[in-house]
Amino acid sequence: MEVFNIKKFSLHDGPGIRTTFFLRGCPLNCIWCHNPESFRKLVGSKSCDTSESKNYGIDKIVEIAKQDLPFYEESGGGITFSGGEPLLQHKELIEALKRLKDEDIHTAIDTSGYADPDLFRNVVTNADLVLFDLKLYASKKHKEYTGVSNHKIIENFYQLSDNSVATYVRIPLIPKITDTEENLFALKELLLQNRSIRRLDLLPYNELADSKYKRLDINHEIAGLKTQNEIQLNQIKSIFEDVPFEITLRG
């Protein structure tokens, strides 16, 4: 498995205390992700910087995963595979998930949902939880901002419900791109059709690392965007008020 980072005591990638393996490679090319190492810091979501990775055999992955077993058991935590896009390494991923199931360790996959539907089903049915990123409902816009159409993503999203795979949905709130009322209402309709959702995490934009963009002059579209204020966040939250699952701001 190509892994570019391993984070223990990871607190925001699923329930409890977890160890997160960040796997290399991503098929998306999100516009807000051009300065990859800081993107994760912008929205508190997964990283897109996968350049420096190391190869781990499955045995090693399981060995590292087991190190914090007492913490998972105490806290209801486990392992999360994030990325990049972990499904790019689906073969090893399925094997790792099966091995961890044998060890009675809870597993989660943090995915963009962009994968071949058969392959996607094979992977997610071996995990205990899926953290599913939803960004934009409108397919055209999705392609414009992420480089790919969202058809597969939406199909896979339905598969989660069809196969009763417990799911946390995460929406990164990029100002004026994903946080528009139009987009959020549309995503909400989509969410309501999925019976497997346990939780929705709305991830506010964080302007703190913004100065870096200015300095590097990389992305004018992203530069200058401001963190949503409390009023805006409450408005956004109120859109999802009546959904039948838990909502969090900031995951």
């Binding site: 925001h12 929205v43 508190g44 506010p204 964080n206 703190l208 900031r250």
Partner: peptide, 22 residues
């Protein structure tokens, strides 16, 4: 040294200078 950043936590020394200042 671990600090809470925004919706997540990270090692302080790994943060950019602006973020550290914040």
């Amino acid at each position: 040294l671990i600090v809470r950043v925004a919706g997540y936590s990270d090692y302080f020394i790994n943060l950019g200078n602006d973020l550290q200042e914040e």
